[in-house]
Design a protein around this nucleic acid. Structure first.
Lengths: 109, 109
DNA sequence: TTGACATGCAGGTAAATACCTGCATATTGA
DNA sequence: TCAATATGCAGGTATTTACCTGCATGTCAA
């Protein structure tokens, strides 16, 4: 198992087409390239490229079945992103107003 | 309050420099542009640009204090990203192996 | 007021990237 | 075998974007 690459995961999530692909796989896991193309108004090759980036980020895993390629979502990297990023800032969320007040009161402007 | 723009948030998080800026603000909230520049090996103007994107994504809020500009982290969009994205795929995480098995057993390849 | 300091604005460039077309390969089913 | 189907590979282009430099504006403190 590859170690997670924060940057690849965030970059992969940074494109709306790729988020849509994840959504599609969330609805129906294990879709083929052709099936996924059916939901996107875009050349097959572009979809392939997007799926390639998702796969490099370990957000999608593929299995060949004959001439087809099945795509499965892998939620693990997303969970790690949550652990490393969202939770960290959750703490801030609670103390934000306090910090803001404190800072502004430093010199009363 | 602006409605959250998924795309802006994800795009903002898609750059390592901007994630570093969020990290810096997580350590010490309310830093000035100059302070933040001190931690990044990059022209001031580039940092300004990154902070601008973070602000457009509502991930950072600014307050002017005299000739300085203070930057505060805003964890709310991150939390919404979590709600809309990570949780959704958490469900998948639990049923993933089951679905995979089922799919592969469909034709036993 | 005036010089030092903090930030804003207006471009300009090179690399990344999101698309595409055209052709090649591999698998299935008649 | 052979035609239809599913995907892979090799480029090409136009937009986006992550940097930069140079100059302008606004604020502070002596």
């Amino acid at each position: 198992m590859e170690p997670m690459d924060d940057d690849k995961v965030f970059k992969a999530l940074g494109d709306p087409t790729r988020r849509k692909l994840l959504d599609l796989l969330c609805e129906t896991n294990g879709q083929t390239l052709g099936e996924l193309c059916g939901h996107l108004d875009m050349a097959r090759q572009s979809v392939t490229q997007h799926l390639g980036l998702l796969e490099e980020a370990s957000l999608v895993t593929t299995v060949r079945r004959g001439r087809e390629k099945l795509h499965f979502i892998n939620p693990v990297p997303l969970h790690e992103v949550y652990e490393r990023w969202v939770r960290k800032f959750e703490v801030q969320r609670l103390s934000l107003l306090h910090a803001l007040k404190q800072h502004l009161e430093e010199d009363g402007t």
